[in-house]
Write a protein that binds this DNA or RNA. Sequence first.
DNA 1: CTGCCTGCAAACTCTTTGCACGAAT
DNA 2: ATTCGTGCAAAGAGTTTGCAGGCAG
Lengths: 154, 154
Amino acid sequence: MSLTAIREKFRKFLAQKSLRVTNQRLAIFDAAFAQKEHFTAEELLDSARAIDDSVSRATVYRTLPIMTESALLREVDIGTGEKYYYPNQSGGSTQVAQVVCVDCDKIFEISAPFMEWYGSTVSSKLGLTPVSQRLQVSAHCDSWRLTGKCPRRS
Amino acid sequence: MSLTAIREKFRKFLAQKSLRVTNQRLAIFDAAFAQKEHFTAEELLDSARAIDDSVSRATVYRTLPIMTESALLREVDIGTGEKYYYPNQSGGSTQVAQVVCVDCDKIFEISAPFMEWYGSTVSSKLGLTPVSQRLQVSAHCDSWRLTGKCPRRS
DNA sequence: CTGCCTGCAAACTCTTTGCACGAAT
DNA sequence: ATTCGTGCAAAGAGTTTGCAGGCAG
């Protein structure tokens, strides 16, 4: 899906939910889809301000849930206190696991279709209906194991 | 393992690490092992104070990592902001997944030995060495689906 | 024009920390 | 007698929210 097509999808989502298309929301959208890695709210704020310096932290925090709901962004919580986001290029609701480097917090997204099967199997045994599942692996990079340093870390 | 045996294990762990056996630490220990469900730091504080009312929030927060390190407690982060804990009766380091009811936050612990295999497989492909893995399924209880109410919820 | 959106700053939640006192070894 | 552990209260991090003014529809 092209960037303009996705931006159009965002406009439509806003319209459909009777939400207004503001410059700030568009700036945040553009900033989000310009990211190459997972990003935090704070990083998104910086990028969005480079596009439209009137964007405030509050608006970023108010816009993120909208973009997550509309499946434009994915939210990842790796338990570090802050949430990470990344553009959902695929458009679908693919099941993904994360491998997280505990040294630099880099996140790798790994397709894990079996997760959904596991979720249903385990839930039904408990009389529950699964909503979502997450699978995360924390790991050291091998260079850390060998040299005590993570190449991506300060 | 009996409760007194576990309490003894706690004393030994403290001694071995040159940590002092204080009334507060023992009260927190007893409070933790009296819990029937997963509990939060705040809940543990309440229970511990019922045993020794001199226990402070700070000491609970300082003791939890000690008990987690010593494998007496397990820590679970389900992404709700606060961490949950529960006594590790088994003594071992079993791989467990969680099924979490999104209505009442009840946590079910499910044995999932394959997680470790998955973690190593996926990590090695990325040149990483796995440290830990977590698998969580969020679900509604069926009574919520049918009646719109969760039996355990306010 | 109406009412949603916005920026600002204060509030919030959970957890951590600096300090001086008190207790375990 | 040391030194670690403690309670208290303040600080911290990330996120949310109340309010008065601003802009989209």
